[in-house]
Design a protein around this nucleic acid. Structure first.
Length: 468
RNA sequence: UCCCCGGUAGCUCAGUCGGUAGAGCAAGCGGCUGUUAACCGCUGGGUCGCUGGUUCGAGUCCGGCCCGGGGAGCCA
């Protein structure tokens, strides 16, 4: 009969019985030999930040020809007794009775992952091997826990998860350039009488793209199920080359009915605080790792956010703050201009020094579906800005009045025909509603201190890069 | 796309005034030790991003291109 297979996480947590042999499987991090006749092997299976130490005596039959040849990255299966560790560094360790090598490392002298800190830039070039590092594995666990926390928060608050379509025919959602989805033969395109491309011959009998936002679709479900959200991939074909942009990223978009901008801001605040709280509780070791290695004071930063009110500030007030600021901006500030990165950074990093919710922007710089305020100049939009990352949330109360929406669409040069179904939502039982988009990778970057969203997603897609 | 910085061993980097390359780590061998980013010694390891030019001679200077990073714009 085979022994129970346990995780390194359970071993280190003291959850594994010490009166019978168990088996652990994973990958070698390091091996140290003692001429006292034992070797120490740090084994990681990814279940926790810390590896488990295997103590391998030279009485093992394969000691000379296998154990002593183990290098970083080898896959092994070890069976033995879990015992309290007599040495510092780990609470428990395994006294190995058998260690079988499942997979060797070819050419260990050129295996890219070494037991030392690598640059994140280098690790992006070995995206298939980087999850074997502490930092990427930790970021991966944080990503998982954050996703679970967000789903749980919504579930506990009566929200329904709506899987909005990834392929869409809305070609002007206003959120950026789109990737085309087509099965047409590029070398032999069907033509219309006028010489244009005949998309009626394409798979969907019309032009189709990858979604840039699930918002419009989720609004339809909001106006039936009241509290809904999306959590899925989103695509932007922008030629963006920054630490905050991906061509493929994940977004969380809640949408609430019978709600205004203030309700929306409150939801955003509760969602973030709740997710951060769960993260600190369930991923304490990984957060401690990021606190020590990536951003000093990270845990305290998150605690501070959980325990304080988000500052809410009208766009107009923000402009006054920036005008008064003793700071030389490259772009001058005046009412009506879109805020530049330097302005947002000043507000959240220097003025407030915490997340800030900016609200009620001039309508000229915002999308057509945002609700017009009574002042005739602004719309009920909001952005949540955080230090270091900038905009983490963008949202608004939606324009629920058909007449006002139509006027805005005309103003923005948007084809009403194309949005007939969206307009229907205002014709049949319209209600005030609001929602926002939370950038998942930006959130992960913020809570880990990682400076680049490319390290917050398993296989980042950026302009010129979809190799893995 | 624009501006700036970079590309030298598997990794992180040094390389002076232009004279065909070094260190630490990793790997291999040996020593030492209940070790823990172990330590000590020895050894192997290079298309100096690619390409053209200047020069007796280019990692080094000049042009073009490719790739990476940071910042800006677009936004989440």
């Amino acid at each position: 009969m085979s022994n129970p297979v346990v995780s390194t996480r359970d071993i280190l947590a003291g959850n594994v019985p010490q009166d019978a042999p168990v088996t652990v499987k994973g990958w070698v991090r390091t091996r140290r030999d003692s001429k006292a006749g034992i070797s120490f092997i740090q084994l990681s299976d990814g279940s926790s930040l810390h590896p488990v130490q295997l103590v391998a005596p030279n009485t093992l039959p394969n000691f000379a020809d296998a154990i002593l040849r183990l290098t970083t990255g080898c896959a092994v299966e070890a069976t033995g007794m879990i015992v309290p560790s007599p040495a510092k560094g780990q609470p428990f360790e395994m006294q190995a009775m058998a260690i079988d090598v499942i997979g060797w490392v070819e050419h260990p002298d050129s295996y890219p992952i070494q037991p030392k800190p690598h640059s994140l830039e280098f690790l992006r070039d070995v995206a298939h091997l980087r999850p074997r590092t502490n930092i990427i594995a930790a970021a991966t666990r944080v990503r998982h826990t954050l996703a679970q926390a967000i789903h749980r928060f919504f579930d506990e608050n009566g929200f329904y998860w709506i899987n909005t379509p990834i392929i869409t025919s809305s070609d002007a959602e206003g959120a950026g350039a789109m990737f085309r989805v087509s099965t047409l033969d590029l070398a032999n395109l069907p033509r219309t009488a006028e010489g244009g491309i005949d998309f009626s011959k394409d798979f969907f009998a019309r032009e189709a793209f990858l979604t840039v936002s699930g918002q419009l679709n989720v609004e339809a479900y909001c106006l039936a199920l009241s509290k809904v959200y999306t959590f899925g991939p989103t695509f932007r074909a922008e030629n963006s080359n920054t630490s905050r942009h991906l061509a493929e990223f994940w977004m969380i978009e809640p949408e609430i009915a019978f709600a205004d901008l203030s309700d929306n801001a409150s939801l955003a605040e509760r969602l973030l605080k709740n997710a951060f709280k769960t993260l600190l509780r369930e991923r304490a070791d990984d957060i401690a790792f990021f606190d020590e290695r990536v951003e000093k004071g990270l845990a305290a930063k998150l605690e501070g956010i959980i325990n304080s009110e988000f500052v809410r500030m009208d766009y107009g007030e923000a402009i006054r703050v920036l005008e008064r600021a003793n700071e030389k901006f490259e772009f001058p500030v005046k009412w009506g201009v879109d805020l530049q990165s330097e302005h947002e950074r000043y507000l959240t990093e220097k003025h407030v020094k915490k997340p800030v919710i900016l609200m009620n922007y001039p309508k000229e710089i915002k999308a057509f579906y945002m609700r017009a305020n009574d002042d005739g100049k602004t719309v009920a939009a909001m952005d949540v800005l955080v230090p270091g990352i900038g905009e983490i949330i963008g949202g608004s109360q939606r324009e629920e009045r058909l007449g006002v929406l139509d006027a805005r669409m005309t103003e923005c040069g948007i084809d009403k025909e194309h949005y007939a179904w969206y307009r229907d939502l205002r014709r049949y039982g319209t209600v005030p509603h609001a929602g926002f988009g939370l950038g998942f990778e930006r959130t992960i970057a913020y809570v880990t201190g990682l400076a680049n969203v490319r390290d917050a997603i398993p296989f980042p897609r950026t302009p010129g890069n979809a190799r893995y």
